[in-house]
Design a binder for these strands. Sequence first.
RNA 1: GCCGCGGUAGUAUAGCCUGGACGAGUAUGCGGGCCUGUCAAGCCCGUGACCCGGGUUCAAAUCCCGGCCGCGGCGCCA
Length: 441
Amino acid sequence: MYKKAFIKDVLARGQDLEGSSVRICGWVHRIRDLGGVKFVILRDRTGMLQVVFKKGELEERVLKEVEDLREESVVCIDGFLRRAPTREGFEVAASSLIVLSKPVEPLPLEVHSSLKAGLATRLRYRWIDARNPLVSKIFLLKSWVARKFREYYSSQGFVEIFTPKIVASGTESGANVFPVLYFDKVAYLAQSPQFYKQFAVIAGFERVYEIGPVFRAEPHHTIRHLNEYHSLDIEVGFIESYHDVMDYVEGFFRKLATDIKEVSDILEAFQAPEIRIPETGIPRIPIRRVYEILESEYGKRIPYGEDLDPEAEKLLGSYVREKYNSDLVFVTEYPWRVRPFYAMRKDDEPEWTYSFDLLFRGLEVVTGGQREHRYERLRENLRDKGLKEEEFQYYLEFFKHGAPPHGGAGMGLERITMQILGLQNIREARLLPRDTERITP
RNA sequence: GCCGCGGUAGUAUAGCCUGGACGAGUAUGCGGGCCUGUCAAGCCCGUGACCCGGGUUCAAAUCCCGGCCGCGGCGCCA
């Protein structure tokens, strides 16, 4: 290994290391060449540190080599750490330089100002864009959210599962799936692990979670949709009502809210506020009540029994922010006509379902609910939706041999990341986004 | 899928409405030079662009049509 320490760790031990020799490796962020003294700002994943090459302090030969450096050259530098009036309080007085790689052509994007470029350009040259410390922080946060997800659900007795992404049919109508050639058959990329996480519960694992890619063939042109994204999925058996599912979702968001201090540096960089959840819990408002609130508070009319549109979600977001001091709100009991066939309908009001969405700062980030686990009811639901039973035969079979009452939720990892940081476009939260036109790099 | 806006050096922009000194400006990058304490280093010299195709016109970066691409709104969703 060329590299022993990250810059952040060197700086953290600055007191102890002062005067002793260190090696740091990374990318050349900036070069300030004053002739007899040359400053190189070296950057790695964890931070930046100034390196000084000074005439009289090192061999002439090394000083010459520095003149060949370009921004984004990859180097290792040996030197000793000393105090200096830099932002970090320290600098490395270089004694030698190892050049591991040098750009073969001018950079199409400048790392330090990449955010001034258009998103299309940045994504085209994402390997350079992502070196921008602010950009990389998005993915450090995303990684953190995924880790918290695993931590939380593991601690609640959930088992991580890994389900197929090549499937025989869509989970609903099949209209928005990507077909793939599977030997001599047509298969599809999974639009959701829905059926298989239910399968896992029924197969006896009781509580399961999965982090995996999902694929949506919708030709949307918005700042909140991707054709490939990562879904945080849970499914849990032996629930008494869909409120049990919401409790588990709420538990995860509470963990995010309380542990967010671990990544406060990232939040600060984005000037993002902490996540507000009231002591009394995330409000749970039936959609029929939401219609009333929207109408009376904002004069916004949603046809009774229809889904909320993006404007309605934003309005509701600011409503709960003011009324409950909450960044989050559950909208519950969605109409049967806008929910999939596997949703459980209310016992007394079959036109409404035991389902919910979770809105985070006015954007839908989670969908969930109780599933219909009763074989005959499930068949009825299919009929009601005008779907052909044959097409869901393999799914229906799961329910023939003992299925506990269960429910679950799917959460959009990129949407959660986007909302925590206040990103303006979901593509920012995906290293290599797939959208209607973009399949490279 | 429907609708709207846009495409100028590597990057980001000015110019377009009102066609003509636009021979396309500026910043940054890139190439070169000066400089021993910079920190968005500075200063000097150089380099480099009107998306593609067609049309209107004496004349098109500018107006019109088509295509491709980009951005966004809606629908759908996480």
